[in-house]
């Protein structure tokens, strides 16, 4: 862990990309998330940490309205993306999700070729005009996901035949192929071995140059390694949010300290 490096980065000032105010989520009778206020900055990696069931994934899924697909979920409060309310009735969740991409806990490549997996987003959103352009997007995305050299000779083979780490990088390539503005990652390394994890973490750091990245993680080391800002959730509440170095070295809330030192979780 290089805390000095993190502090150094945090000095730069950035724009607010997503601004959430008073976000509440109910799953049926269960109050899963209470009154969350968070500002997520552009070109920053923001980590959500906290014990299981604390609401961090729930909040992540609010940011691209994935909770819409869960029938019993009810979201209230406001979430602004570039100043626009994403829960406004005029916003189509389908278009929103093209701007706010998502990578899931378990690698979930579609049962298609590697090429078709990456081309999926550009195709459904009509982002390219011809095959040559699509080829370019696919190659660029795979390069950004640090997968190009491994798969360039077998683009037409099935995506499910790759190793776990390659599959997850394929899913990242798929998510960035639509050139989103925000990339949400829900525990992207939890199903990967340490080497693949290191590759994905390196990638996340590079992706920061182009997107705002939000990552949910169970590993505090990972949060410290990859993020500039960290939010700590506990029992559906946002306990503390701030600069990563500060959260890990001098947390202001006793609950944060307990979690970081391993006493709750």
């Amino acid at each position: 862990m290089n805390d000095m490096r993190i502090v150094e980065r945090a000095v730069e000032t950035r724009n607010i990309k997503i601004s959430a105010r008073g976000v509440q989520v109910h799953y049926g009778d269960k109050h899963a998330l209470r009154d969350v206020d968070v500002d997520i900055l552009d070109n920053t990696v923001t980590a959500f940490i906290g014990p299981s069931g604390c609401g961090k994934s729930t909040f992540l899924r609010c940011l691209n309205r994935m909770n819409d697909t869960v029938a019993v979920a009810k979201v209230s409060g406001t979430i602004l993306l570039d100043g626009e309310d994403i829960y406004d009735r005029r916003v189509d969740p389908v278009q929103l999700r093209a701007k706010v991409g998502m990578v899931f806990q378990k690698p979930n490549p579609f049962p298609k070729s590697i090429y078709d997996n990456v081309a999926y987003g550009p195709r459904i959103h009509g982002l390219t005009r011809n095959k040559a352009e699509l080829d370019e997007v696919v190659e660029a995305s795979l390069r950004k996901a640090a997968l190009w050299n491994e798969v360039k000779d077998r683009l037409q083979e099935g995506g499910t035949g790759l190793s776990g780490g390659q599959q997850q990088r394929l899913c990242i390539a798929r998510a960035i192929a639509t050139s989103p503005e925000v990339l949400l990652m829900d525990e992207p390394c939890s199903a990967l071995d340490p080497i693949a994890t290191a590759q994905v973490e390196e990638l996340i750091d590079e992706l920061r140059a182009s997107f705002s990245v939000v990552i949910v993680t169970h590993s505090m080391q990972q949060a410290a390694r990859v993020s500039q800002r960290t939010a700590f959730f506990h029992l559906g509440n946002l306990v503390e949010y701030g600069e990563t170095g500060a959260i890990f070295t001098k947390p202001s809330d006793p609950r944060t300290e307990s979690y970081i030192t391993g006493r709750i979780g």
């Binding site: 389908v94 093209a98 987003g121 639509t178």
Partner: peptide
């Protein structure tokens, strides 16, 4: 068909029929 595939597709901004 695993739910994760649906999530992946919806997360890309695909509609239901897509």
């Amino acid at each position: 068909v695993p739910q994760s595939l649906r999530d992946g597709s919806y997360g890309m901004g695909a509609t239901r029929s897509e």
